[in-house]
């Protein structure tokens, strides 16, 4: 008996052992707790990504909620051959881009406005990096073109491969490679200017 059949047989099971795609199948079968499990898995990750896209915590929270509600309503459109994660981040990316186009807001987020601390539990080297670099980096990220920004954030924050990013953004892998490189070039140049170091080639 497969994991899904086991769940559908009515026995209470821990959904944490199920893959994202299994949870979607369970959800389509009427198990609403599967969607709660998916939200628990991705809510903070989607929020973190959207926060870096729009730079406003309150708006990021709204977009995050919109993303999950949209995912729920459009669940029938999800194809089993696609990863749920890339599909979800595609919705989040589109929502964030829509927001940016609608509002043209490029306000900067302060580190204090984010819940929690940046340096808790980190080693001294990371603490130095965070205090010296993160605030400047966040400012630089906000100055990147949104299309470059989203590709880089999906790579750096979500650890997606170029193929997954291409699927999430509906572009070719070559485009992903180019966007990430251009975004990095902008950030490295910006950090070099902050440090007074000669810029990269």
């Amino acid at each position: 008996m497969t994991a899904i059949e086991h769940q559908l047989s009515g026995q209470a099971g821990d959904l944490r052992e199920f893959s994202d795609e299994d949870c979607v199948v369970l959800l389509k079968e009427g198990n609403s707790s599967a969607f709660a499990e998916l939200m628990r898995r991705y809510q903070s990750r989607v929020y973190s990504y959207v926060l870096r896209m729009v730079s406003c915590p309150d708006d990021a929270m709204d977009i995050c909620q919109t993303t999950f509600i949209s995912a729920y309503r459009n669940l029938e459109k999800w194809q089993p051959n696609a990863l749920f994660r890339t599909w979800l981040f595609r919705i989040a990316s589109n929502s964030a881009i829509d927001y940016l186009r609608r509002n043209k807001l490029y306000t900067q987020v302060s580190l204090e406005s984010v819940d929690g601390t940046l340096t808790g539990g980190m080693d001294p080297e990371h603490q130095y990096v965070s205090s010296a670099r993160c605030s400047g980096m966040i400012n630089l990220i906000q100055q990147l073109p949104p299309l470059f920004r989203q590709a880089l954030l999906l790579r750096e924050l979500e650890g997606m491969s170029y193929a997954e990013i291409a699927q999430a953004l509906d572009v070719s892998e070559g485009t992903v490679k180019s966007r990430i490189a251009r975004a990095r070039y902008g950030l490295v140049s910006g950090l070099d200017q902050m440090d007074g170091v000669e810029s990269v080639r």
């Binding site: 903070s44 984010v114 929690g116 808790g120 490295v188």
Partner: peptide, 18 residues
Amino acid sequence: LGNVFSVMRQESTEINIV
């Protein structure tokens, strides 16, 4: 640059919108 992003990944942005 990757190290800075590594630090950003460790920030606490825990939310509960469920």
